[in-house]
């Protein structure tokens, strides 16, 4: 049994324009100590999918169905009070913006010890010692001095490390990282990605990494799910995915990277993402796809195993067979 199992998850948001279908039926599994990348462009539903796990979506406008099981226990129907105990303890989250996610009025040490004392019931002293250990773990130099500092005294990279330290304070089973390095410089990013790798190796933390950056995926993920218009279009171990992308959208993303330029030109993906308000029974990518045929317009392809069978793609005309 997998650590985390998401089955047929759909998430709609009630907006003034109508019901926005952010996630339209996604199923995925996360194993112990696995780093799973959820990738895709803005609006593909990657963040919404991940945030459904700790139930961090606005409750009054969100309509969610499907199942999210952690260790076999259903989370979607859990009362909010139980969910609060799970958040930060079993499942924790690192956000993109390290400045706004830390409380500017409290020291870094207080913010870490608070979590420890609430979830683990540690004494003040024990929590402090643990906080120092945690800061050391995420690669912050002079941790004993840093815990007395306020968030504004730290740089962006250091703040993000503090956020990670808080997130892993209670040794969560699952760590959800939403574009954790997007706001950081590349020379800082490499160090922060190392922290995730290290946590997985030393604590066995499973990580869901939400990112739009295929370079980050290639660097750190074990497996990746590519999302488009609220659905998974391809899923595979990372080396396999990059070696033989099957779905034309995945291939399009890879070829659109500036480093993939051929004769001074980049491969574009023509057209735009379909409306999030309607969901016709067709391949959501067909209007932009060079391989699209009549069958793509008649029926929606399902995510099906390819060769090898841990490589899944939702396409009637998958490429990369060679």
């Amino acid at each position: 049994m997998s650590l985390l199992e998401i089955t047929d998850l759909t998430v709609d948001f009630d907006t003034e324009d109508g019901l926005v279908q952010a996630v339209r039926g996604i199923s995925l599994e996360l194993g112990e100590g696995e780093i799973l990348a959820l990738c895709g462009e803005s609006g593909c539903g990657k963040s919404v999918t991940a945030m459904s796990v700790p139930r961090l979506l606005p409750p009054d406008t969100t309509r969610l169905s499907g199942s999210v099981k952690l260790d076999g226990r259903e989370l979607t129907t859990l009362p909010e009070s139980r969910m609060r105990q799970i958040r930060g303890k079993d499942v924790s989250v690192v956000f993109q913006e390290p400045m706004t996610s830390l409380n500017p009025s409290f020291t870094v040490g207080y913010q870490i010890t608070e979590v420890l004392r609430r979830h683990e019931g540690l004494s003040r002293r024990a929590a402090r010692d643990r906080a120092v250990e945690l800061l050391e773990l995420v690669g912050i130099p002079l941790p004993a001095r840093r815990i007395k500092e306020y968030p504004h005294q730290l740089s962006g990279g250091m703040r993000q490390r503090v956020m990670i330290a808080i997130a892993v304070a209670c040794s969560p089973r699952v760590l959800i990282a939403d574009e954790p390095t997007t706001a950081l410089d590349v020379t800082i990013q490499a160090g922060v990605l190392d922290v995730f790798r290290d946590l997985r190796d030393r604590l066995g933390t499973a990580v869901i990494l939400i990112t739009h950056d295929l370079g980050v995926v290639a660097d750190i993920a074990d497996r990746a799910v590519v999302m488009y218009a609220g659905r998974a279009v391809e899923q595979a171990p990372v080396t396999e995915l990059f070696a033989r992308p099957r779905h034309p959208y995945t291939l399009g993303l890879m070829n659109a990277l500036p480093s993939a330029a051929v004769n001074g030109r980049l491969a574009e993906i023509p057209g735009m993402v379909p409306s999030p308000l309607t969901d016709p029974d067709e391949c959501a990518f067909q209007a932009r796809c060079t391989r699209a045929q009549d069958d793509c317009r008649r029926k929606r392809p399902q995510l099906e195993p390819q060769q090898p069978d841990d490589h899944l793609a939702a396409c009637f005309h998958p490429g990369g067979q060679s």
Binding site: V20, S42, G43, G45, P276
Partner: peptide, 10 residues
């Protein structure tokens, strides 16, 4: 969450 709503509505 915000990214779900980023699609331009004409």
């Amino acid at each position: 969450m915000a990214d779900a709503l980023a699609v331009p509505v004409t």
